[in-house]
Simulated assay, not measured.
Amino acid sequence: MNWIEFSSSVIGHLISWPVVVFFIAMIFRKPIANLIANVKFIKSPIGDAEFGRDVKELEEQQRELSSVSQEKHESDDSFSSAGLYEEVAPIAEHSPSAAVVESWRRIEQALVDLCKAQGIEVENPQRTYDVLRQLGENNIFTYELSRHLDSLRKTRNSVAHSKEKPTAGEAMAYVDIASSAYAEIKNLSRT
């Protein structure tokens, strides 16, 4: 074997498909990471995994809000989120989209009730955006709660208009987050 054959053999082994795939993955790691973040469901022989970017963002916002609301509502007469969750969560097993829409419908009604309880006139109470704006202008909501509710609204809209099809797990997570927001709105109605 001369040096040309040896060099050709070494180069042939170095440029094998695993090495090429590794270098391509390293070059395109950020775009690949963004694609993986948008994957909703992966099924493999070793197990299944669910992902949902919108739901994860809502969960992060909910954690921020829960720390603030726990300080505000430490009394025993605060409204619990368990009622809404127990009523709507079973829907998610059969129709995840319906569970998301129903959770948001309950929040919308709670927002209208809050406006009435606070004596706030809203020109068009059917437009949730107007209701949220009025509550914000009257300093009923914190910026964080308003932003969180707007994120819940946008997620509901993408589901209601068939832009996204949530899985049962994502719908259950949405219902859980929505029920906490619902309880926060109901607690504001009591003050």
Rank of each mutant, 00 (worst) to 15 (best):
residue 94 H to W: 07
residue 74 E to L: 11
residue 91 I to V: 15
residue 101 V to Y: 09
residue 68 V to A: 09
residue 155 T to N: 07
residue 4 I to K: 08
residue 53 R to S: 10
residue 46 I to T: 10
residue 30 K to P: 03
residue 137 E to I: 11
residue 86 E to C: 06
residue 100 V to K: 01
residue 63 R to M: 09
residue 133 R to G: 05
residue 183 A to H: 02
residue 28 F to M: 05
residue 158 S to D: 13
residue 138 N to C: 10
residue 100 V to P: 01
residue 54 D to R: 04
residue 21 V to E: 09
residue 100 V to T: 06
residue 4 I to W: 14
residue 138 N to R: 10
residue 16 S to L: 08
residue 172 M to S: 12
residue 89 A to L: 02
residue 169 G to I: 01
residue 39 V to M: 14
residue 34 N to Q: 10
residue 52 G to P: 01
residue 34 N to C: 06
residue 171 A to G: 05
residue 126 Q to H: 10
residue 2 N to H: 11
residue 12 G to V: 02
residue 60 E to P: 01
residue 8 S to M: 03
residue 23 F to D: 00
residue 18 P to D: 13
residue 185 I to K: 07
residue 184 E to K: 01
residue 146 S to G: 14
residue 133 R to P: 08
residue 125 P to W: 15
residue 50 E to C: 08
residue 62 Q to I: 11
residue 78 S to D: 08
residue 55 V to M: 12
residue 86 E to I: 02
residue 81 S to K: 02
residue 50 E to V: 14
residue 103 S to M: 08
residue 81 S to Q: 05
residue 61 Q to Y: 15
residue 169 G to M: 00
residue 190 R to E: 14
residue 163 K to W: 14
residue 65 L to G: 07
residue 36 I to G: 06
residue 83 G to C: 06
residue 66 S to Q: 13
residue 59 E to L: 09
residue 22 F to V: 01
residue 181 A to E: 06
residue 23 F to W: 09
residue 15 I to C: 13
residue 33 A to Q: 05
residue 126 Q to T: 11
residue 12 G to A: 14
residue 76 D to P: 05
residue 109 Q to N: 08
residue 72 K to E: 09
residue 103 S to Q: 09
residue 130 D to K: 04
residue 186 K to T: 04
residue 153 R to S: 00
residue 117 A to V: 03
residue 188 L to R: 12
residue 130 D to Q: 11
residue 79 F to N: 01
residue 76 D to I: 12
residue 142 T to K: 11
residue 24 I to T: 14
residue 94 H to R: 13
residue 21 V to Q: 11
residue 11 I to L: 14
residue 66 S to D: 13
residue 60 E to H: 05
residue 153 R to G: 00
residue 31 P to K: 02
residue 83 G to L: 15
residue 57 E to K: 15
residue 92 A to N: 03
residue 63 R to H: 09
residue 18 P to Y: 01
residue 13 H to R: 14
residue 43 K to S: 10
residue 63 R to W: 15
residue 178 A to H: 03
residue 101 V to I: 09
residue 82 A to S: 14
residue 60 E to F: 02
residue 114 L to R: 08
residue 118 Q to S: 13
residue 45 P to S: 15
residue 91 I to H: 01
residue 11 I to A: 12
residue 109 Q to I: 02
residue 113 D to G: 09
residue 17 W to H: 07
